[in-house]
Design a protein around this nucleic acid. Structure first.
Lengths: 354, 354
DNA sequence: CTGTTAGCGCATTCAA
DNA sequence: TTGAATGCGCTAACAG
């Protein structure tokens, strides 16, 4: 065993070749390693005088306990996995920001991985989290398989924003149907009868819920939904632009557009600007998810806020709560927490042209 | 609002009480633990037939090697610390997205912590990273002390976007002076002579560089800088609005405003919109950092792109490169990588009113 | 090619 | 109140 040997020429001052261990502190303080552990963890069992000496020694040599060794020994890590689709999308960034805020305050830290909305990347991330023995994961899920795998490995999971598994894992969801109904009813109330819905998917609870809300509002108003005005598109802004363009060409009588998320809204607005259409004079535009640009553009966009940072905070609280009760053995059934959306009426929606 | 409670004591099928270990796999495959290790790591030394049996056994019982034990044993973790100011600011979010992309591709993962620009939180995060024994950290630094502490603990560090320590750690920086000079020269070239600079700090290389560029462009054009037009403000949008408002009141002859970052630009635009000032007819506006809303508003904003996602990727590449060479013992001196900015001339800048 | 042995750093027995 | 011994799960020496 090469004790302190090796061949570092110019050893930098203060630069530890190998981080100091509890034994180093013990030697420095003239006690045993176990006493160091007790003194530092405050698990009682340490004479005040000794404790002080240990603390001083630890500080002197710059001792920082190895979290990996701790996790190994204690069978519990303070890392939490967070798995989202796209950090560049402000919705996910805000969600992550809220999550991180709560985790940090609780002494945990966030392993953040982007899965780009891909199931294979999601599964890879799950492997990573399992390998790290994280106690819990917060995920905007892609596949139920990932959730199930996490569950099987004994990892607590919170499904955020959308829910792909009702069997496993708590969920924190926006009230998508309510939100979409709010927007649609607002448009209907303004007098619109030809409202286009720009949407990218309905296989998740988000898209399905928003479509349902769109329909529900129509039903409540006694206005039939023209299925031709429900425009499915891909999840990027460019696709949304193209889709809206074609829809507007085919249906010049459309007087309002509801874009089901912030990316689609961006594409929609770009197409509308390209065509020089007057909003809300000729066409009303409403969105989902309040992201900064929506209040910067003129007219400012009417949209649904999900209070995303608070949404993220809530996700973390639910997970931490679950971890706390799970420790006590009480394995409660999956919970569902709903974040109430708020309709923000701004300047992009007005009565249809006469 | 939470629904679903109760406590099912029924242990779910498939839910492992304690994760399977290498020994479990060994027993299952009828070999020794070390053979399992070799077979799984492909460190040679395993008969094909045995290897296959081990793989099968591992898969069957759902074995995932414990990363903590590995880190402990190998003295090397695959976690990288990333420390930024504010995930809600798209600049930092994009930076983090670029970093994560490269790390993930290289089989590492990102521990992301927000320090809200606070030195105390930054130091806390440093402790966490040291405890986790991460080999490297990428940080948009607040204090030199944090960098030094990291260095002392043998952690490689990359200072991203700004540089607070020239002694320790590589740096990946935007060419702030160049970028600001580009913008200012553009404005000067348009004929502006009364240009206001809205800036929040000059203690960091970012602010100092941008101010220097502003001055350099003036000097090159032979136009004196009116120090009254260099407006210092706080780092939030609201403060920027107020500061710009007062400046415009005091100096009605200002014909152009250069906001030194995306947050200040937001505040500036809000104030300009509030006052109903015509851009660029009455006033030109230019910014730094290209964030999505700048191309959504009308007129679209002239700004400097730092290609932020690529910037982040570069940070990760520099760190990984350093880790690779550091292992080989060659401790090279701190490197500095510069990201070239690009002036994006859009519609918010035009010649001053006659 | 494979098994045995040992130790990474820590926290927790159990004795003293 | 403290120290010695033990083992968390893994991999690298070192036999065999």
């Amino acid at each position: 065993m090469t004790t302190g040997a090796g061949h570092s020429r110019q050893q930098r001052a203060g630069r530890a070749e190998r981080p100091p261990t509890g034994s180093d502190v013990a030697r420095e303080a003239g006690v045993s390693p176990s006493t160091v552990s007790r003194a530092l963890n405050g698990s009682g069992y340490a004479a005040p005088e000794v404790r002080a000496r240990v603390l001083a020694a630890a500080a002197r040599i710059g001792y920082v306990p190895d979290a990996n060794a701790r996790t190994l020994r204690n069978r519990s890590s303070r890392s939490i996995g967070v798995l989202i689709s796209d950090l560049r999308n402000p919705f996910y960034a805000d969600l992550a920001a809220g999550i991180e805020q709560v985790l940090r305050a609780a002494g945990h830290h966030m392993i953040l991985v982007n899965d780009d909305g891909r199931a294979d990347e999601e599964l890879l991330a799950v492997q990573t989290f399992v390998a790290m023995r994280v106690p819990g994961v917060i995920v905007t899920p892609v596949s139920a398989r990932a959730i199930r795998s996490l569950h099987q490995h004994g990892v607590q999971v919170v499904q955020a924003d959308r829910r792909v598994s009702t069997r496993y894992g708590d969920a924190v969801l926006g009230a998508d149907e309510t939100g979409a109904e709010l927007v649609t009813a607002h448009l209907l109330g303004l007098g619109h009868r030809r409202i286009a819905l720009l949407i990218d998917e309905t296989k998740w609870t988000t898209g399905a819920g928003r479509l349902a809300g769109f329909r529900a509002a129509h039903a409540a108003a006694g206005v039939p939904v023209d299925e031709e005005l429900v425009a499915f598109t891909s999840f990027d802004a460019e696709a949304a632009s193209g889709t809206l363009g074609r829809l507007l060409d085919d249906h010049p009588d459309v007087t309002a557009v509801f874009a089901a998320n912030n990316v689609l809204a961006q594409g929609a607005l770009q197409e509308i600007q390209r065509r020089g259409i007057d909003v809300p004079g000729q066409l009303s535009l409403a969105a989902y998810d309040d992201v900064p640009w929506m209040s910067m553009v003129r007219p400012a966009l009417t949209t649904v806020s999900q209070h995303t940072v608070g949404f993220g905070r809530r996700c973390a609280q639910v997970l931490l709560g679950r971890l706390a009760t799970a420790t006590e053995g009480g394995a409660a059934r999956p919970s569902v927490t709903t974040i109430e959306p708020e309709l923000l009426i701004r300047d992009s929606t007005a009565p249809p042209p006469a």
